[in-house]
Amino acid sequence: MKLHIYAVRHGQTYFNRYNRLQGWSNAPLTAQGITDADEVGKRLSQINFRAAYSSDTDRAQVTAQRILKLNIASQPRPELKAIMNFREQFYGYFEGQDMGSAWLAAGGPHGAPTYTQIVKQFGLAATRDFLKEADPFHDAESDTEYWRRVEQGFQVIASDPQLLDNDRVLIVWHGNSLLSLVHRFGGSAYEHSERPKNGSVTCFDFDSNLSFEESIRIVSYGQ
C-alpha cells in the first residue's frame, strides 16, 4: 500500500518564539501560531484526506484540528488520531532550555559548539547522541531510540484498516522531526540545513510494503 503523506509542521509556539528546545514540552501556540494553522488549513482545504494523524502534544493537535475544520474535500472528515510516536525527539534535561546553550553543552566537548557544526562534523544522528551523553540523567533520546519510536508510528499508519492504496494522509508533526526525515530519506536532493517553517508542508510517499529504510520517498520539503 502506497500512501501520499502531507506532513505539516505545527504553528508557532512560545518556545519557538523564545528559541528554546521543545521536544515533549507543551508550550501553547502564539497568535501567529494560530494564523499559521489557519493559513495551511486553507491551503490544504481541497485535499481529500482519508486519515489524519498528529503528535499527541497540544501544539500539534490544535494545529491539526484547525486544518481539519477548514477542510471541505474530505467527506466525511477523518477523525484525528494523536499518537506519541509522532512527538518531537525528547530532549530530556535540556527540555525548555535556550537552544544555543543546550547545543553548546552537547557539542562543545566534541569541538562542535553549535547544532550546525555538530551536523557538519559528525552528522545529524550525533545531535541526538551527544545531547543524551551531555544529559546528566541520560533521559534525552538517542538516535536509535528516536527512530525506533517513529518507525512504530508508521507501522500504526500501515495497519490502519481505513486506508487504501494511494490514499492521502495528513500528519501534523514537528520541525526537527521533519528535518530528520528529509535528512535521512531525501539525501542531497533537498536543502536540509534548517528546520522547515511553522505551518509549512512536506510531502512524501510511504510504501508500507517495503522495509522502513526503503519505504519513504520525499516529494517536497517545507513548502
Results as ranks from 00 to 15, higher is better:
residue 129 D to M: 02
residue 127 T to D: 12
residue 149 R to E: 15
residue 152 Q to S: 14
residue 138 H to N: 12
residue 137 F to D: 10
residue 151 E to D: 10
residue 166 N to R: 12
residue 132 K to E: 09
residue 136 P to V: 03
residue 145 E to Y: 05
residue 145 E to L: 03
residue 126 A to L: 01
residue 117 Q to F: 02
residue 145 E to N: 02
residue 119 V to H: 04
residue 151 E to R: 13
residue 150 V to L: 15
residue 136 P to C: 10
residue 123 G to F: 07
residue 144 T to W: 13
residue 138 H to A: 09
residue 134 A to W: 07
residue 147 W to T: 08
residue 147 W to A: 12
residue 120 K to C: 07
residue 155 Q to L: 09
residue 124 L to R: 09
residue 122 F to P: 07
residue 127 T to E: 11
residue 167 D to L: 01
residue 165 D to C: 07
residue 150 V to G: 00
residue 157 I to A: 06
residue 123 G to Y: 11
residue 162 Q to C: 06
residue 117 Q to C: 01
residue 143 D to N: 09
residue 157 I to E: 06
residue 128 R to D: 11
residue 125 A to V: 01
residue 125 A to C: 07
residue 162 Q to T: 14
residue 169 V to H: 02
residue 143 D to Q: 01
residue 144 T to P: 03
residue 163 L to V: 03
residue 159 S to P: 00
residue 142 S to C: 12
residue 141 E to G: 09
residue 133 E to C: 10
residue 168 R to S: 14
residue 130 F to Y: 13
residue 168 R to W: 05
residue 161 P to W: 01
residue 119 V to W: 00
residue 139 D to R: 14
residue 130 F to P: 02
residue 169 V to D: 05
residue 147 W to N: 12
residue 125 A to Y: 02
residue 155 Q to P: 03
residue 144 T to V: 14
residue 133 E to L: 10
residue 151 E to N: 10
residue 132 K to W: 03
residue 164 L to H: 12
residue 118 I to E: 02
residue 160 D to L: 09
residue 138 H to E: 13
residue 159 S to I: 04
residue 162 Q to D: 14
residue 125 A to L: 01
residue 131 L to F: 10
residue 149 R to M: 14
residue 155 Q to Y: 01
residue 119 V to R: 06
residue 158 A to V: 08
residue 130 F to E: 03
residue 165 D to F: 12
